[in-house]
Design a binder for these strands. Structure first.
Lengths: 360, 360
DNA sequence: CTGTTAGCGCCTTCAC
DNA sequence: GTGAAGGCGCTAACAG
């Protein structure tokens, strides 16, 4: 009832924060002047002294523009949505961290949505755009590419793909999956490996395909032949990695001396299988994985990886998206080239072929 | 350039989404009626047929209330803020997932903030409340308890502590750190261990203290004495776990046969040290850690853990907070009791004391 | 150059 | 039971 500044009932506090009219009154200017100064409107010419007074009064009153009012007027929410497959996956977490930093720097907030049990991907886009009214979408999921992309385009709303590409869309920010994978193979080749296996991701996904091609590139550079028997589909999970590793162990003869795994989880699963099978890493089998992360240090032995700029990818995606929203111009695809091998203890030269016992 | 269905200027599309007046007109009723029906206003009596028509028309027009307009009017943002120490930590990720689910179920969105380099915790609260105008705060950080708590209280805004307690605040949702820790020790005791070490967290943090006390409880239950030499401070990182394990290995004589680690990362670091030192797990040293997570499966050997309802904790926190915001009533602290040992391969009975070689 | 004014879309009394 | 009207705080167009 009486909900003015000093209330006693203790119910929900109606924050009596300063509004633009308070600032205008206290500074002896019009609301418009305050609005323009606060937004840093370049085209607004005003005496320095007035500008200063406004700024000071605003600070003193702790004035913060009400985003709802501003949003109502401008039909902008100053927020971005980011859609990821899962939250508890370090890869996506780091993309988010980067995106959030970029958003915060430009005054946007970030709404995070993950693919939920029973909620279709396209429904998430809809919800973010139609209900939350985000100004733009950062999309790191694309379960069914064609469906998702047409849904996205139908929204007629700014968006950017991160860590994915799709045909017909040139708004993307990706890392160099292919180049990094090639580098992984190069690393193994440099150590002397000639029989190199690959645990690949899900067959039709962008990242998997790129990493597989990078693997092939690496072989080719080294003058090695691609042998489909040395490649097993592992998906992106530990279990998948384990199953694929088992398969390789059984059917790839002779056994590879090194493995390039498409993800850290894949490698982790594979390493479990190797341990059980009594295959020593790195003595009998070298292992390298794409993307770096804390779990690489935790594995036994610590895992050699290809480090990629995941945070930067998120940062660039948000930056590009905001640029597009505010500038209106088109932006085109961006590939972050930088990749780097992080040597730990899971890679080593292949063991010398031991002398044939019969020859003793 | 022309990359969209129907657009010529190519500038930002002003989404002409349906507004309440459109629905009212199309359904032949007043805006007020639509508003009441859409919000499910109980005290609004209306013919079923009218209600149905409104609902249908709204669905057909794909009407979504504009949150800015609604927020301006109601001075509510229908959003919650959650503040965590780091995003790329599975523990916090799972709390967030739970909170997000609860928020979504009740029509709230969740703004995630993490402690950023160079941004004080209290500044994050301020920003969320004053600038983003969240309706409530879920706080999982509390670096400096007294400072943070008074800042929180000064905000005069609904908040709930999650995974933390603080004196003078009874709005919290926590798991049973102490009971779960006791259970971990019980598990080791049941296997026959009598000399059990503890790698503890940062000394003055809520969770660390509880887990240490749970450890002590467990010892006491088993009639064992607490020996400060068997406890080493490990913080929450791998490096800390490694350092503490080294310390224990050097200074605790005789060496413990089992370790209870305060976190998964701590255990991971410790296991690395044990491996280097040639101490076999679980033959020579059993290891168990508080909280469960994917990395437990990845370690060598897979790590036995105490599983705790992290997601539920986030869910309950958001639910309680929303209840408070909407209902206005006080809510009191909540402890989620359920904990469970997940047996993997890092715990086993202590090796029999081998017969003294001299006695042969 | 600065101030006045007219809504943005919604919710909520208050008449009918 | 239903509708008309005012205003939440802000910005952008237009006067002066």
């Amino acid at each position: 009832m009486n909900d003015s500044p000093k209330r006693d009932a203790g119910l929900k506090s109606k924050r009596p924060s300063a509004k633009i009219s308070d600032v205008a009154k206290a500074a002896g200017v019009s609301q418009a002047a305050v609005s323009r100064v606060m937004r840093g409107d370049e085209s607004f010419v005003v005496r320095d002294e007035t500008r200063k007074r406004i700024t000071e009064v605003a600070a003193e009153l702790n004035y913060q523009p009400n985003p709802a009012a501003r949003g109502l007027r401008t039909s902008r929410s100053q927020s971005l949505g980011i859609v990821v497959p899962e939250l508890d996956n370090p890869v996506h977490a780091r993309i988010i961290i980067g995106a959030e930093r970029a958003a915060a720097e430009r005054g946007y907030s970030l709404l995070i949505a993950h693919r939920d049990a029973g909620m279709v991907e396209t429904a998430i886009y809809d919800r973010l755009v139609q209900r939350n009214r985000v100004d733009g979408l950062i999309v790191a999921t694309l379960a069914d590419e064609s469906v998702a992309v047409s849904a996205l385009q139908a929204l007629d709303h700014p968006f950017v793909l991160v860590n994915r590409k799709a045909s017909g869309v040139n708004h993307h920010v990706v890392i160099n999956d292919r180049g990094g994978s090639r580098k992984a193979v190069e690393h193994l080749v440099a150590l002397g490996h000639r029989r190199i296996g690959h645990l690949s991701g899900a067959p039709h996904r962008y990242n998997s395909k790129c990493r597989l091609r990078g693997y092939q590139d690496g072989l080719k550079d080294a003058g090695l032949f691609y042998d489909a028997n040395l490649v097993a589909e592992a998906g992106y999970t530990m279990e998948g990695g384990a199953a694929a590793m088992r398969q390789l162990l059984q059917s790839a003869q002779p056994r590879p001396t090194a493995i390039f795994a498409a993800t850290l989880f894949t490698a982790a699963g594979a390493m479990g299988v190797l341990r059980e099978a009594g295959v020593k890493i790195p003595e009998e089998m070298s292992m390298i994985a794409f993307n770096d992360g804390a779990i690489a240090d935790v594995l036994a032995p610590p895992l050699t990886t290809v480090r990629t700029p995941l945070e930067t990818m998120g940062y660039q995606a948000a930056t590009a998206l905001i640029g597009h929203i505010e500038g209106g111009g088109e932006f085109s695809g961006q590939v972050l080239e930088e990749t780097e091998i992080v040597e730990r203890q899971s890679t080593a030269p292949p063991r010398q072929r031991r002398p044939d016992p019969a020859s003793c």
